[in-house]
Design a protein around this nucleic acid. Structure first.
Lengths: 192, 192
DNA sequence: ACCTGAACACCGTTCAAGT
DNA sequence: ACCTGAACACCGTTCAAGT
């Protein structure tokens, strides 16, 4: 006799994300998630293949949200200003969802890799903005430089690695400005 | 009746590091470490306060080794070349010990933070080299920019995040050059 | 002193049995 | 169909008992 579903994959992912953010990745247990959606742990396996699959689904959810945030950040027609805005939006997102953010850049065995496509609109936007500054030929190296800097800065910041005092916001602004200039085809002063 | 110690903290840390590198952080269990040093899991608690303490000790060991590697990398008197060499040594270390490296930049509750002092000689060397390029006033922001870029690049690389093809080594060289230029004081006469 | 087995409270995961 | 309790193989950690 069929019984109605008491939960859904979407609800499980949402609950998992909430628990992740509140308790950290170690606190994200199948039992907690099950309790949050009103079910017992074994029932989760009807919709999700296991814990690592759940974590992967959460990471995909986070990537999508981040993508829309980045997309919305490029509002001017000036690529230099847009790129700074994109980097700042990236950082603000990480501050709002530090545990979720950490999920995006963690080391994983090849097989479990979350296929976070750089094809997501927000990353495309970033990529296009970089290309406008660095030129078609150097766009890949330039994009990698920008993303490496931004993600590294944020990871260190969230890991509490900036312990020498100073103004961290100011260091981010300094870095953003310098990096934008560094990847630009012409020195900033010559642009019009 | 006293029995002789069958292992030591140093041996435990070394075994733990080997297991970490071979099996990943999840594979680093007290039982495995115990087996590797020829003892049962409960005996580890005589020398180490628990698993997170063990991980902290391993992280400190890694930080010290990284420090000596960085220190040895600065061999010329040209700070620009030295800084590139330091960044490359940093990257090479991470490639040799990817799991150990990941330990250094992971998010931790404040209380468990591994007190990886920036006072370690290798980091001092890097800091001094940056200062020679960026000047005393901007050295903190400049150092943060360099380390953020390098650590971010390496994390992404090790996480398998560079999936758009292209030459990753070339992207690192490109980034290193551009960043060194970006944090350097402008030569006299050039306007901004 | 140091080491150990046994025990406890947790995990993730499987599966037969219930509705 | 979906959910569940029971079971299994693991964890980390504690502690009384052994040497």
């Amino acid at each position: 006799m069929p019984t109605p579903a008491r939960t859904s994959t979407a609800q499980i992912v949402a609950a998992g994300r909430a628990i992740l953010e509140a308790e950290g990745l170690d606190g994200l247990t199948m039992q907690r998630v099950a309790a949050a959606v009103g079910v017992r742990a074994p029932s989760l396996y009807k919709r999700v293949d296991g814990r690592s699959e759940l974590v992967r689904l959460i990471a995909l959810d986070v990537a999508n949200e981040l993508s829309t945030v980045l997309e919305a950040a490029a509002t001017t027609r000036d690529p230099a200003r847009d790129l700074v805005a994109i980097a700042s939006a990236f950082r603000a997102f990480a501050h709002r969802h530090p545990e979720a953010y950490a999920l995006l850049f963690r080391r994983l065995p090849e097989s479990l890799r979350p296929a976070i496509d750089m094809g997501l609109p927000g990353f495309e936007t970033m990529f296009r903005t970089v290309e406008a500054l660095a030129g078609r030929e150097r766009r890949l190296e330039a994009a990698r430089t920008v993303v490496a800097w931004a993600s590294g800065f944020i990871s260190m910041e969230l890991a509490g690695a900036f312990r020498l005092g100073g103004d961290v916001d100011e260091a981010f602004e300094y870095g953003a400005e310098r990096i934008v200039a560094a990847i630009s085809r012409r020195p900033a002063g010559e642009r019009r």
